[in-house]
Simulated assay, not measured.
Amino acid sequence: MLRTIRVAGKIALIASYTAPMMLAQSVALRTGWWSDRRLPQLWHRMTLKIMRIRVRANGSAARGQPVLLASNHVSWTDILVLGSITGVHFVAKSEVRNWPVMGQFARLQRSVFVERERKRASSEQAKEIATRLSDGDPMVLFAEGTTGDGNRVLPFKSTLFGAAKLAMNETGKSVLVQPVAIAYVARRGLKLNRSERTEVAWIGDADFVPHLLEILKRGHIDVEVVFGEPIEFSSDGDRKEIARLAERQVRAMLSTTLRREK
């Protein structure tokens, strides 16, 4: 009973600042009076604190030129984790658009929604991402195309990496693809083993609300984010090769982090 009251209190607290921040974000988008990345970053940080998820960053996102952050994907909480570190925009699956609260916030954060199962739409979606990169928006691509169990990296889908090359063609500038590894390493100060890490992960088509409630009940999760060495997409670059290089870096960074945390 006490745990239920605590969860309800956390939900009420999150709701208390979410609505006014959404309104303020709408004003930012309409007027441009302040950066549309500031409020989402603050919201992510506040919400992680309430959920008792602690983030440690190793390195930082590249700056000074268009950058596509290519990350592994473990849970919906990855969005909060990366969004709390730096001001970014996300490439999200189309279903996210209709999620309660998170979906609306994703729209206000100017996420690009893609339908990965629609092969014919891939080129149009890549063009939209390319336009955003050309405009200077750092974009996050969860390159596996789905969530994994947090212990390993699934093969990267190369199609949307083509957005980096399109952006380069549009701007005449070089574009960076920066690998990023997200590792869930501990709960309540105790290192997670493979099985426990799977419990933290939000895999496949698992229901969102039960997983959210479980995180709110238990919390106390430590996450490490490792930013890898940016890969420059040259004029003769191949998206499949860039995807392989990024995947290799992310796999190595995740493995190193999980071994170190044992």
Rank of each mutant, 00 (worst) to 15 (best):
residue 97 R to T: 06
residue 35 S to T: 11
residue 80 L to S: 12
residue 58 N to E: 10
residue 68 L to D: 00
residue 93 K to C: 03
residue 71 S to E: 00
residue 51 M to Q: 01
residue 86 T to H: 15
residue 73 H to Q: 06
residue 79 I to W: 05
residue 45 R to P: 04
residue 63 R to W: 00
residue 57 A to H: 04
residue 74 V to N: 02
residue 101 V to E: 05
residue 64 G to D: 01
residue 28 A to G: 06
residue 43 W to I: 10
residue 34 W to I: 08
residue 78 D to G: 12
residue 34 W to C: 14
residue 88 V to Q: 06
residue 36 D to L: 03
residue 30 R to T: 00
residue 46 M to A: 14
residue 52 R to F: 01
residue 105 F to L: 13
residue 40 P to W: 03
residue 95 E to Q: 11
residue 91 V to W: 04
residue 30 R to I: 02
residue 50 I to T: 09
residue 54 R to M: 00
residue 48 L to K: 14
residue 84 S to V: 11
residue 98 N to Y: 15
residue 74 V to I: 10
residue 36 D to M: 02
residue 70 A to R: 07
residue 61 A to F: 06
residue 78 D to V: 14
residue 67 V to D: 04
residue 103 G to E: 00
residue 40 P to I: 00
residue 71 S to L: 07
residue 65 Q to M: 14
residue 49 K to Y: 13
residue 70 A to N: 04
residue 67 V to Y: 09
residue 85 I to C: 01
residue 52 R to Q: 10
residue 36 D to H: 11
residue 42 L to H: 12
residue 103 G to L: 06
residue 46 M to W: 09
residue 77 T to I: 15
residue 89 H to V: 04
residue 91 V to N: 05
residue 78 D to K: 14
residue 54 R to K: 14
residue 96 V to Y: 08
residue 97 R to K: 13
residue 97 R to D: 08
residue 55 V to W: 11
residue 58 N to F: 10
residue 57 A to S: 15
residue 38 R to Q: 13
residue 93 K to G: 10
residue 101 V to L: 10
residue 45 R to E: 05
residue 93 K to Y: 05
residue 86 T to P: 05
residue 96 V to H: 03
